[in-house]
Simulated scan of single mutants.
Amino acid sequence: MIKARVTVTLKNGVLDPQGKAIKGALGALGFDGIGHVRQGKVFDLELEGNDKAKAEADLKAMCEKLLANTVIENYTIALG
Rank of each mutant, 00 (worst) to 15 (best):
A78I: 01
V37S: 04
N69V: 04
V42S: 03
D58I: 12
M62F: 06
L10A: 02
A68Y: 12
K52I: 13
A68P: 10
A28W: 11
I22D: 00
D16L: 05
I2K: 15
N74I: 07
V37N: 04
D16P: 11
A68E: 02
T76Y: 03
G49C: 04
H36K: 04
L79F: 01
T76P: 05
I34R: 09
L47S: 04
Q18W: 04
K23S: 03
G19W: 15
I77T: 11
K54V: 03
L67D: 05
G35I: 12
K11C: 06
V42Y: 04
N74V: 02
K23W: 00
D44Y: 14
E73V: 09
E48R: 10
A57C: 05
L79E: 08
G35T: 15
T7M: 01
A25R: 07
L26E: 08
I72E: 08
L45V: 02
I22C: 12
N12L: 13
K65W: 02
K65P: 00
G19D: 10
K20V: 13
E64W: 00
G30L: 10
G19V: 14
A68K: 05
D44H: 13
E64M: 08
Q18V: 02
F43S: 05
D58A: 15
L67Q: 02
G30Q: 10
N69I: 11
I72Q: 05
K3R: 13
L59G: 07
A61D: 12
H36C: 02
I2D: 10
L66E: 01
V37E: 01
N69M: 05
N12T: 12
A55Y: 06
K11A: 07
L47G: 07
V14S: 02
H36G: 02
P17S: 08
A53N: 13
G19Y: 10
D16A: 03
R38F: 07
K52N: 00
N69L: 09
V37C: 03
A4H: 09
G49T: 03
L66R: 05
H36N: 13
A68W: 11
L47I: 10
L67F: 15
A57Y: 05
K23E: 07
G33I: 07
L79R: 04
D58W: 01
I2W: 05
N69P: 11
G40Y: 00
A78V: 12
G33W: 06
F31K: 04
G27S: 13
F31Q: 09
G13T: 15
N74G: 06
L79W: 06
I34V: 15
L66A: 07
F31W: 04
D44M: 00
V8C: 06
K11Y: 13
I22Y: 01
K3A: 08
P17V: 10
I77H: 15
P17Y: 14
G19L: 09
Q18R: 03
K65G: 07
F43W: 15
F31A: 09
A78W: 00
E73S: 04
G80Q: 06
H36L: 06
G33S: 08
G19R: 12
A21H: 11
E48G: 14
Q39K: 07
N12E: 15
L29T: 00
K60C: 01
R38T: 11
L67H: 07
D58R: 08
K52S: 08
G30I: 07
L59P: 11
V8L: 12
K65N: 09
N12I: 06
